[in-house]
Design a protein around this nucleic acid. Structure first.
Length: 219
DNA sequence: CACCAGGCAAGTA
DNA sequence: TACTTGCATGGT
């Protein structure tokens, strides 16, 4: 077992012991998870919940119904999630993709191989690597590790990577040094985000309260 | 008041 | 290619 493999496991176990299971991704359907993935771009989940609740209250959290809305109507509904004009357009792009690809039968996408579906999702304007991988892992149950700014920050503080590492390189690093397990991927990413939000803020370079402090080298 | 959140695309040089 | 900037609400 390499140092990187050992450290990742140590970080995971420490986080899990401190925070317990995350039960991610919140959402009652595949489509809801995909919508949430777009709405949560650079946005607190708390705000996303309000937007999703708006859609549910209007019984609109279904591809065929959302498609009927004008960009303006959609934007007004998702306003609490921030960037609402941009995100209304991105949701429309995703809906158009669903219509053209599988005639709104989103479940059909589950049959696509991981790399094929990933490429198709990335071709949609407004779906980048983190959004695509979140949909793939938590929605489509594909074995792909989701990384983000917190992942780079935390792993950098444990001397595993450079903080300015690219998305793809960081993802490769994680998958090379973790057991190949979908449930592990789901829980680890969730724990990283929860830990990052609480203890690893930008302004907080090294925090004694962080559960990871005890396993940090050179502290 | 400042800061930032479960990013991404477009613009500039 | 490598930076920068716009997007926007709401919590701490």
């Amino acid at each position: 077992m390499t140092r990187a493999q050992n450290t990742l496991l140590n970080i995971y176990n420490t986080m899990f012991k401190a925070l317990g299971p995350s039960h991610w991704w919140p959402g009652e359907s595949l489509f809801e998870i995909c919508v949430g993935a777009i709405l949560t771009q650079n946005t607190n989940w708390n705000n996303v919940e309000k937007a999703i609740l708006n859609l549910k209250d209007h019984d609109l959290l279904v591809p065929r119904k959302l498609m009927w809305l004008t960009d303006q109507e959609l934007a007004d509904l998702i306003r609490p999630a921030g960037y609402f004009r941009i995100k209304a357009g991105r949701l429309k792009n995703f809906l158009l993709f669903l219509k053209k690809e599988v005639d709104f039968n989103i479940d059909k996408l589950k049959e696509y191989p991981l790399r094929t579906l990933r490429e198709k999702l990335l071709s949609v304007k407004g779906i980048g690597p983190e959004t695509a991988d979140s949909m793939l892992l938590y929605g489509f149950e594909k074995k792909i590790f989701v990384v983000d700014a917190y992942t780079a920050r935390i792993f950098n503080r444990h001397f595993l990577i450079q903080e300015d590492i690219t998305y793809d390189d960081l993802q490769e690093f994680c998958m090379e040094n973790l057991a190949s397990d979908i449930e592990l991927y789901k829980e680890f990413h969730a724990l990283i985000v929860r830990t990052g939000k609480t203890w690893c803020k930008k302004k907080n370079p090294l925090c004694r309260d962080c559960p990871l402090y005890s396993i940090m080298e050179n502290k």
